[in-house]
Design a protein around this nucleic acid. Sequence first.
DNA 1: TTGTCATGCGACACATATGTCTCATATGAG
DNA 2: CTCATATGAGACATATGTGTCGCATGACAA
Lengths: 186, 186
Amino acid sequence: MTISPRLSTKDAIIEAAFDLLSRDSGASLGDIANAAGVGRATLHRHFASRDDLIKTLAMLAMEEMDQAADAACEEASSYSDALRRMLAVLIPLGDRHGFLATEPLENDPDMVAAYKRQMNETREMIEAAKKEGTFDRAVPTSWIAQSYDHLLYAGWESVKAGEVTKAQAVDLAWRTLTKGLGEANQ
Amino acid sequence: MTISPRLSTKDAIIEAAFDLLSRDSGASLGDIANAAGVGRATLHRHFASRDDLIKTLAMLAMEEMDQAADAACEEASSYSDALRRMLAVLIPLGDRHGFLATEPLENDPDMVAAYKRQMNETREMIEAAKKEGTFDRAVPTSWIAQSYDHLLYAGWESVKAGEVTKAQAVDLAWRTLTKGLGEANQ
DNA sequence: TTGTCATGCGACACATATGTCTCATATGAG
DNA sequence: CTCATATGAGACATATGTGTCGCATGACAA
């Protein structure tokens, strides 16, 4: 009797799904099972439906982002620094998690809850960064959070397009957030 | 003989498609035909396939954005002002065109060409705005363009979420771009 | 060896969307 | 009135993905 029911197979499916779906968000379960080197029936033994698989991937993506963010936070010297470091670790995850942006996850209550929780953590860090003087108190936290998310996305796209390196993307996104694109006068 | 082959029917389908797909990007052709008040066969008489319809919508969206942008440009006093005004007219179009972001259009050469053309126009305006002193010459134009697009998207989402009004979204996105979120010192 | 378990394979049923076709109808032009 | 055109309704074939099931196989533990 195997201690845990062969995690490797399930993991192989998950990895193949992340890999395939990032390149073709319309890939079928057959494609995914094939890429994972398992039968389609085996995939169904681990994931009841396509939605189940997608949801698992989305939850995993949340966890992975949380872990990366937590690791970045531990090394940080301030909340502002933490936000900057998070940018650096989250941008590369776009290759892996980006396809989830085109999935209809807003209907799943669990996903909505998980997303809100993560969003709240970001908001708290932004509030803290405001107190550190990094952000203007007069700017709504919700807008800073939106900008943070979308500039993170912009950074990933820029790297993907080969316009900048990852490090440059982080610097540019962070500069845009904190200092702005305009000349630094006045 | 009708002068032009009953544009109203085709337009009704297009309008219904914009409306339905923005709320449910997975709506079927039957749903769309139904919403348009026409038979599914009639839809096929105007659009050979689903891809054909989507592509038509995407092309129309491009035109609509172009027209709105051009109108905004005519009233503008400078390239910088034009970019700001474009923000104001493009953010509301998100409700209508947003669903196209989840469609796989990157495979269609026509769409890629149209997108590149539009992107180039934006780039040229940004270059001009650089000369006006609005943007730092040291920042890559590609990054400014990316930020512009994504902050535009962020503005739309903020409005959609009810966090800000359209006018506020424009102001915030523009401030983020030109001045930055940080306090305006140094 | 024996038994269990995960798996691969293939068959099957099912659902849905899609594209095509035919026929009857209504509208409007001539 | 007559004809052409656009349309609605519905049938039809097809493709594709999806989910389930049964059975044989191979690995591994007892």
